[in-house]
């Protein structure tokens, strides 16, 4: 879902709903941002403005928190987000070749989104599934023991 398809009123009521779920307390801030991020794939500035008014917290402070955490994005992302683990456990069992293949197949570098808005390619510090490295996660789907020649087949599963 993009923010463009929602009216200002809808954005506002969504923010209210999320805040209602977690409560308007300081400790709820990161969970609130996570839920909004989940809804839109990122944190549209309209939602940040609405949240700022609801919580009575300056937008600068919201942005400061939002920009700190890896799983929160202040920029729009593609329809499918690919996370590739670039840490040592995946690296020493062939991760480097998988990464090269991913970049070549998509024509993207880390952090980039394809022009058609289909893919966003991200690297991750560790996805916590190190027993089956190299690991990539596409949206919520986990792929372990990935070999370079298996990459095109994985990508082909997504429309």
């Amino acid at each position: 879902m993009t923010v463009g398809t929602k009216s200002a009123q809808d954005v506002n009521s969504l923010v209210q709903e999320v805040v209602g779920r977690h409560g308007a307390t300081a400790e709820a801030l990161v969970p609130i941002l996570s839920d909004i991020n989940q809804e839109f794939g990122y944190l549209p500035s309209e939602t940040m403005a609405a949240l700022s008014q609801t919580l009575r917290v300056p937008k600068s402070q919201l942005f400061s928190v939002a920009s700190f955490y890896e799983m929160l994005s202040t920029k729009p992302r593609g329809r499918h987000v690919i996370q590739f683990c670039e840490s040592a456990p995946c690296h020493v069992v062939g991760g480097r070749q998988v990464w090269q293949t991913l970049q070549d197949e998509l024509g993207l570098e880390t952090g980039e989104t394809s022009e058609d808005g289909k893919w966003t390619l991200l690297t991750s510090s560790c996805l916590g599934i190190c027993g089956v490295g190299p690991v990539i996660i596409v949206d919520d789907d986990i792929y372990g023991n990935v070999a370079p020649d298996g990459v095109p087949e994985i990508l082909a599963r997504y429309a």
């Binding site: 400790e27 990161v30 890896e70 799983m71």
Partner: peptide, 24 residues
């Protein structure tokens, strides 16, 4: 309390900051 992706939040005082709704 679910984190949002930051290795440093494993450090105990950063973790506490994060629960309090701040940068970790």
């Amino acid at each position: 309390h679910a984190g949002a992706g930051a290795y440093i939040c494993g450090e105990e005082t950063a973790l506490i900051e994060s629960i309090e709704g701040k940068r970790g």
